[in-house]
């Protein structure tokens, strides 16, 4: 007995009959089958569940379905344009920024929003990455190659390279 919610997910309006108290993370993974979004902690600490809500990076474990009703959500599945990867995704692959990969969707989503917004350029680009991505914990890489990848992606975006 639940009023349907409408969420625009990766550009497509989706109607889900979910309790408004249900976590957006669970709606995406279980109701919509978008399992690219991962749960690492359930307490908003690790960032693995990061999605964009109306363009802003959020932890989808800290958003309930009601809050997403009528809004736009972008998940990792929506970053690429068909087979054409987002610059962040391409650079993460090219520069070894993904290892076990469980934090990678959250990092890719957050970084895509950040570099598309024009950040992580200029002389302090690396410091910007370290501040803006601090909500995404990676236990594999020591962060170095992810910083490399995001700075490179920001440069790609600045050059207009998709």
């Amino acid at each position: 007995m639940t009023a349907p919610l409408t969420i625009t997910v990766n550009g497509q309006p989706r109607t889900v009959a979910a309790s408004p108290w249900r976590r957006l993370l669970d709606v995406l993974r279980e109701d919509l089958g978008l399992t690219g979004t991962k749960e690492g902690c359930g307490e908003g600490e690790c960032g693995a569940c990061t999605v964009l809500l109306d363009g802003a990076p959020v932890c989808s474990c800290l958003v309930v379905a009601g809050q997403a009703d009528g809004r736009a959500v972008t998940t990792v599945e929506g970053l690429a344009d068909g087979p054409l990867l987002h610059a962040v995704q391409r650079e993460l692959v090219a520069r070894g920024g993904a290892q076990c990969g469980i934090c990678t969707p959250g990092i890719a989503v957050c970084a895509a929003a950040v570099v598309d917004g024009g950040a992580c350029r200029g002389g302090d680009a690396r410091a910007q990455v370290r501040e803006l991505l601090a909500g995404n914990i990676c236990r594999c890489t020591g962060y170095q190659l992810i910083v490399d990848a995001i700075v490179a992606a920001a440069a790609d975006v600045e050059r207009g390279q998709p």
Binding site: S19, P20, W21, R23, D26, G42, E43, G44, C59, C61, L62, V63, V64, G66, Q67
Partner: peptide, 25 residues
């Protein structure tokens, strides 16, 4: 009363379901 929810929704799936939610975000 729910604004951003970054405190109230920590481990929401383990919390009792509220009788109602006023979303003021």
């Amino acid at each position: 009363v729910l604004a951003g929810g970054t405190d109230l929704l920590v481990a929401a799936h383990h919390k009792p379901v509220p009788v109602g939610i006023l979303d003021i975000a």
